[in-house]
Design a protein around this nucleic acid. Structure first.
Lengths: 202, 202
DNA sequence: CAGGTATAGTATCGATTCGAAACTAATTCC
DNA sequence: GGAATTAGTTTCGAATCGATACTATACCTG
């Protein structure tokens, strides 16, 4: 079977997984939006970041977000660092809606794969996403854990390391590390946190 | 990373691969339609089969197909076996358009994967598609080669085997075997053609 | 600090898409 | 022969989305 058939199968899988939408009164576009804001870190929960992620325009993204705010799924709050910027956060209503996400049928199917196939799938999907995003000139939206901008310093006192984003100069909590970020850039050769003290690598 | 993240990555990969569409004057829906009619066998190149494949209604599918016919990408011909049925075939114009398919960026990315990862990806995607299609109550659209309705008989004269579809009672050419079929049902345990003479297996 | 430019977000318009429902015609089943 | 089914089409209204124009804030350069 050739590559084209596999590519079409991937597209087909995504289409039937996302489903007709309109589950729980939410449209497919709204589901996608909620999923994004559920996984994005606090620097990326903006209209612009979502527009880039969803490969659409800011105008369209703004419309979708506005609808979700008016229906009580997102809260809107201006940034105090940048007067232009607005951050959107999930409400409890959104979180409870996400527990009935139609995409969960795919998540569950993935859970039934043998562990090694599941890992292989994950790395292949990640590679393909980076490859395609690169040839389309789009950011690939990874998590801080694998980002070249992640800085890690050990606290003097004990084991607990502290993290920060080199690019934005902002601290990161340990459970922020797996969230999506617009500013993601893949780290060259270090899959884990780069330490600030141990000098440059490669 | 949990299954949900992987599921979302698959959806994301598909979205950015399909692209904004509107390449070569064709919309995303039209691209999908052409891709389907390029891969479907002669029993499945109908509005109904495409509607099922694309997880949409016959009405919507009919409109998309109508547009492609009027623009010269598909030809329309009534079936002589069933007076209700209409078959659509790709024109040369469509075939040449498909050589600029925007989905090709994904095909090429898949081609760059190491061979074992590529094979693993293919089988995982196939399993996931069947799983998800099953829980959504939709057909999974495989090829005759892996279908339980494929019948294979050896010609007396020599090596050339001949194939047929048990369900429809129609002969199949050797190069029909990899096309998509609405009537696909996965064969239990025989990944290759089942022979008529060698009795039932398992 | 003034002026130009870039960026974040919003609003509006028109084209496309899509689902639902009504409808025609051919087939199958009892 | 008549009811139910199936293939395909048409129409209508809602939702989506891209393009464009617009406001407000931030940055940059002299």
């Amino acid at each position: 079977m050739d590559n084209r058939s596999i590519a079409q199968s991937v597209a087909q899988l995504a289409r039937i997984s996302v489903g007709d939408g309109h589950v729980c009164g939410l449209t497919p576009a709204q589901w996608n939006t909620l999923r994004f804001f559920a996984r994005a870190n606090r620097f990326s929960r903006t209209v612009s970041a979502f527009a880039e992620f969803h490969a659409t325009t800011r105008g369209t993204a703004s419309q979708t977000v506005k609808g979700l705010v008016s229906e009580g799924y997102l809260t809107r709050s201006r940034s105090d660092l940048d007067g232009r910027s607005v951050r959107f956060d999930l409400t409890d209503k959104a979180r409870s809606a996400l527990s009935h996400d139609p995409l969960d049928v795919l998540s569950e199917a993935i859970g039934k794969l043998p562990p090694d196939a599941r890992n292989q799938l994950q790395t292949s999907i990640k590679r393909l996403t980076e490859e395609v995003a690169h040839s389309r000139g789009k950011p690939s939206f990874g998590s801080c854990r694998f980002c070249c901008h992640l800085a890690c310093a050990l606290r003097k006192s004990g084991g607990e390391p502290s993290y920060a984003c080199d690019l934005l100069g902002q601290p990161l909590a340990a459970n922020d590390l797996d969230d999506l970020c617009v500013n993601f850039e893949t780290a060259k050769s270090n899959p884990t946190a780069r330490s600030r003290q141990d000098g440059a690598i490669s």
